[in-house]
């Protein structure tokens, strides 16, 4: 049942963007909305659907509420890691192929 909901939740492109915004770590509604062509209330609505699907969870931090990818949802965990390694290996490749003279000190092999 959870996976049916997850499927439906991520079928919406804007909602998928909201989910991907959380790939790098927990975010507030404001931080998620920044740069997206949708209002904060709309983002809140998307988060509500994602939470109902078991893809996203939230916790209070001070006066703010932070949203993050719910690792209890296996689909979410896998999707998150898939994205994480795409980004990280691209950065790794760039680092390996960067001329040695411009590589940051301390990162020499």
């Amino acid at each position: 049942m959870t996976y049916d909901l997850a499927l439906a939740a991520l079928a919406d492109p804007t909602r998928r963007q909201v989910f991907e915004r959380l790939a790098a770590g927990p975010r507030s509604v404001g931080a998620i909305a920044s740069g997206l062509p949708v209002s904060r209330p709309a983002v809140s609505q998307h988060l509500k659907v994602l939470r109902a699907a078991g893809l996203v969870a939230d916790r209070a931090q001070g006066t703010r509420r932070l949203y993050f990818i719910d690792r209890g949802g296996l689909a979410a965990l896998r999707a998150w890691l898939d994205r994480f390694w795409d980004d990280s290996l691209a950065a790794f490749q760039a680092e390996v192929e960067r001329p040695a003279t411009t590589r940051k000190k301390g990162n020499q092999p």
Binding site: T2, Y3, G72, L74, A75, D82
Partner: peptide, 16 residues
């Protein structure tokens, strides 16, 4: 996403 989750849904078939 879609294909991956469909595959997951078919294989897992239960809530984590």
């Amino acid at each position: 996403w879609q294909g991956m989750l469909e595959r997951l849904a078919a294989t897992v078939g239960l809530s984590p």
